[in-house]
Write a protein that binds this DNA or RNA. Sequence first.
DNA 1: CGGCGCGTTGTAAACGTGTGCATGAGAACA
DNA 2: TGTTCTCATGCACACGTTTACAACGCGCCG
Lengths: 358, 358
Amino acid sequence: MATSIIDVAKRAEVSTATVSRALRGLPNVSAATRERVLRAAEELSYSVSPHASSLASGRTGTVGVVVPFVNRWFYSQVLAGVDSVLRAHDLDLLLYNLGDERVHERFFTRMPLRRRVDALIVLNLPLSAAESEALVSMEVPIAVLGGSIPGCWHVSIDNQEGASTAVRHLINLGHRRIGMITAAPGDPRGFTTPIVRQHAYRTVLAQAGIAYDPDLEVPGHLSIDEGASAMAQLLSLAEPPTAVFAESDQMAFGALRTLGRMGLSAPDDVSVIGFDDHETAELLDLTTIAQPVAHQGELLARQILDALSGGDEEPTQVVVPTRLVVRGTTGAAREHPPRYHSTPRPGPEPDQHSTTAR
Amino acid sequence: MATSIIDVAKRAEVSTATVSRALRGLPNVSAATRERVLRAAEELSYSVSPHASSLASGRTGTVGVVVPFVNRWFYSQVLAGVDSVLRAHDLDLLLYNLGDERVHERFFTRMPLRRRVDALIVLNLPLSAAESEALVSMEVPIAVLGGSIPGCWHVSIDNQEGASTAVRHLINLGHRRIGMITAAPGDPRGFTTPIVRQHAYRTVLAQAGIAYDPDLEVPGHLSIDEGASAMAQLLSLAEPPTAVFAESDQMAFGALRTLGRMGLSAPDDVSVIGFDDHETAELLDLTTIAQPVAHQGELLARQILDALSGGDEEPTQVVVPTRLVVRGTTGAAREHPPRYHSTPRPGPEPDQHSTTAR
DNA sequence: CGGCGCGTTGTAAACGTGTGCATGAGAACA
DNA sequence: TGTTCTCATGCACACGTTTACAACGCGCCG
């Protein structure tokens, strides 16, 4: 299809300039000519070359989305939100998945997005100061999820409030010995979420007059397995917790698995609360702190739209609320906390590793 | 940053043509000049304009990926696979999420990818004949996952074999009354997977000398809820199945939930097998047919690389094997199948809707 | 009737790179 | 020493738009 704007111009008997104006719906073209141009374009099944257009205009009609892991529930959900509003405004979405450490590095040394996008959306990516600076130096609007870069647009949840609510929920149920499975910030980069949540945990306990016990804080990465081993560690304490706040639902799932494998259950033996409202949280009947996931993606995209269309407004920072979702894994503390057995309780198949509904 | 190739040329005291050749590593440029050019580019922190480059060369360095739902586990996983190999070859990934029906239509009327990508990867998208044709008319290499378009590259799993294995597994455990929760092809478009699996189910039953009973085939969409209600329907039969093959893990999850809510369990009352090996299948201890998900994405991307680099080879069709993963939700059929109770069995909290480990 | 403003259209110059072709300098060879 | 071949480099055009500027026609008002 070598049909260019020139062909359309010839067929409509106007200049290429008029074709360009007519096709983009600019105001200063008469109704008759516009009609003629549109018809010609239609008949030639013409479509503009995005590259030529970008080159001439300087605009790319594309926004880059940088993601740590596309294949994790949370990010794919946010991505869908971003996509829906970008798409509705005819903006293209250039995806960058930086899960791998080497890919991450390469991205920041080569900066493949330079001159390639009109704006950037950065999802929850732990960035060094130099990396943040590199992004800013691209001189396009940037919207950041769950981070903080000076001069950028921001969307985040109220981690302080969410985590506090989780811990208060457990306290209100009568628990006094409350553990936390926390995502340790092993990275030297600015990734503040776990710190904020941990701080909230400690603060709420202190407010309730409960003494701080470092043994009850177990670190791990954001995965099922790490959640599982963290729970194992908690249960091996001389005086185990009667309730556990897990930094993420994933970790909570692991915690539940450990409970199941040890013949214990939630909330009878230990109450468990998570964070995120992951899609399988409902399935596992997990009490959790819900955050609006896709919605955050939509908000990010909207901020970008504002930044692109609306001149030089100041970047905004929007904080979306979290919500306690009470399900079946949290319950009232017992008068006398149960003794923990090292042997599984009697069951149909005691040695089977299973957390299945049964 | 208005630094263009001209600035680099001046600084290195060569022509722009030489700069272009040197930067792209073309062979016919002397080591000394190349060195000088690279240094000049470095000092000016110059990076080529992808759009100008595309315009001049005709190549875009971009491949479009069309996805029905980015936010579903399966697709996000495949997407990650695609991304990893494209990224390794410096190809950009333009994402199109067509979940919404209107977005889908709009995509095919406006064809926003025309002239914008060097190749296309289509993930498991139900397409009408006209739509397939529209894609082919873009005249770029196309790799299709789980579908069939003449002249395109193909990756898929062996659904026939996978489904047969699932049903045989149940038969080998002694089950004779086996239900199937199937994803009804409500769409008029070519989406053959459910049909193939259903056919395999019927065939294997027939081979085992088990009479076909249409009541045991319950249709629904690919979701937890639909799986749940399908299972409810199966359990309400006069003579319920002792084992169920669910078309997808998601549907199997729903089935397990229904069992749990009715006070039944797998495999004691009903054996359940799924398909996919979804990430939470392990958590729920679900027996399933595993398919290599990210790997399929990698294969698609590799096909595209072949198509782009290697001249005019014939498109290939690669079929990846599935694998039976035996976990805890399938077990031997009982001699005397249990009577189903309409009231939940005694438990700590009988009326609680929960499939949690307990 | 002349000048002015407005709305519509054309002209032509960017935008920044890739690439066919010509040129020139040596090297190899007879 | 002259011819041919190779390799490095430059020239200039093409790629397909957008857009500043100019030009033109026309109605309106003084």
